[in-house]
Design a binder for these strands. Structure first.
Lengths: 266, 266
DNA sequence: GAGTGGTCTAGACCACGTA
DNA sequence: ACGTGGTCTAGACCACTCG
């Protein structure tokens, strides 16, 4: 019944086929962006049913190693991720205050940044209300943005504010705010002096997958930033959703350190 | 042909079934840790073939929402992630220098931390050699650790050093180093004054999945830390692999900031 | 032994994009 | 028109764990 490529057959057939195809890809036999054999060819090559071949291929798709482009076939994934730099230090105002850092960072690189902004009053999603210290049922204002580079979605950036705080302020205005929303809050007497950052890693929800054009096998990082005033009042929660195939989160630490989860072993 | 649950049928049947089951889980009809109907029951309920039901369930498994525990059935995922805190600031030596931060952080919480350490001379994996500024073929020393909490794998922590730098030093010794490896390097005249951090998000390799007991639908964060001396010499690269279902990366920013990828919109 | 999910086969029809 | 992958059915055997 067909060629048995691995004499040491371990586990189900589709695992063996997936292992061999993975080795071909990683070993460079099939280059980046290259085309895999068709399902029919693999069916003949391994002498198994088409569904078995499909099971093997779906393993690699779910690993994010390959993708299918019907009806052209399966291809090895390619593409370098962008850099995502959480801001660590106080820095001077940018040259053009009407353009935010995302916009100015990327327009330098010859890429064309665009974004959509939408402001709504919402019942805050799970987790957001708690971080904003809202009573159950208390509404929040959501400034939702999707950012694009050269027309491709780059990330989701949704900021939430207590409605009681920002009602009838500039923050409710859809569209750019020249000063920046944090400055608006500062001018209102709510300067943020601390921020808590959390990064969760998970698979996208179907809604996120659609909003960001995320394919199978692609996780997202969920960066939640909570801004707090000197009075320990939470005035803002920002939710960033970053597709894993398009981002590297990078930052630099300028001071020496002695103890680090990375490398210290007492 | 069975009950059609959604009068507005969009897309393939297994998507519709997956959507309905997802709604049941998210809506709380099936609580955390609760059991889903069996494949046979769903087959009867929806009047479709078992493979169609399995396709729907595999969608939710790959989203990380449910898991299967044969032969008990499918269950809604549960479990709170641990905190992972990249160190940001200089901090004093811990009370017990022979125990690293991972160990002391978690023994406080009534969890039992353990780790395995293994030191080998290796041809550095892709990406590591470049970061260490090694010539092609030049070997590196790998200190590989897997850390456990209560016997369950928590993360992978592999540090790489140029062999030419650390040959015949304490770093080659498998097992704990009382001073800490960074202190050893400092005492050798290679104090690290800067570090570059990169976080990649992706699905685990099969080897990582096995080493860390990672189930389907669980992405990993890959935290790469590159330590540099005042002479711009790279003396260490650490590779952390964190399963997404067991970690939240958290940190606090103590200074105000005006421009931030999170929230600034000029 | 009974019931679960895991794997595999055989065959069929469809939607889609390219040629 | 053709070949691609996407979906679906029908039926079968297996390994495992539980009662």
């Amino acid at each position: 019944m067909g060629v048995v490529p691995t004499p040491t057959r371990r586990g189900p057939i589709y695992h063996q086929i997936a292992d061999e195809l993975r080795a071909r890809v990683i070993g460079g036999d099939i280059p980046r962006g290259g085309k895999l054999p068709t399902e029919a060819e693999l069916t003949a090559e391994y002498g198994v049913n088409r569904q078995t071949v499909r099971s093997a291929l779906s393993v690699l798709v779910n690993e994010g190693l390959i993708y299918s482009a019907r009806p052209q076939g399966y291809f090895v994934r390619d593409g370098e991720p962008m850099y995502y730099r959480p801001q660590r230090e106080f820095r001077p105002q940018p040259a053009s205050p009407e353009m935010d850092r995302f916009m100015s960072d990327h327009s330098d690189l010859g890429r064309h940044p665009t974004q959509t902004i939408e402001v709504t009053i919402v019942d805050p999603p799970a987790g957001i209300g708690e971080r904003l210290q809202l009573e159950p049922g208390e509404p929040a204002v959501a400034r939702r943005r999707v950012r694009f580079l050269d027309g491709e979605p780059y990330n989701i950036n949704d900021s939430y504010y207590p409605l009681s705080l920002v009602q009838d302020t500039e923050i409710m205005k859809p569209g750019d705010i020249a000063r920046g929303t944090n400055q608006v809050l500062t001018d209102m007497g709510y300067e943020q002096v601390r921020a808590f950052d959390e990064i969760y890693i998970r698979m996208p929800t179907p809604e996120e997958a659609e909003r960001l054009h995320i394919g199978p096998g692609t996780p997202v990082a969920c960066h939640i930033c909570t801004g707090v005033t000197a009075d320990d009042q939470t005035v803002r929660v920002t939710l960033n959703v970053l597709p894993g195939d398009r981002h590297v989160i990078v930052y630099e630490r300028a001071r020496p350190y002695d103890h680090d989860a990375d490398d210290q072993e007492g």
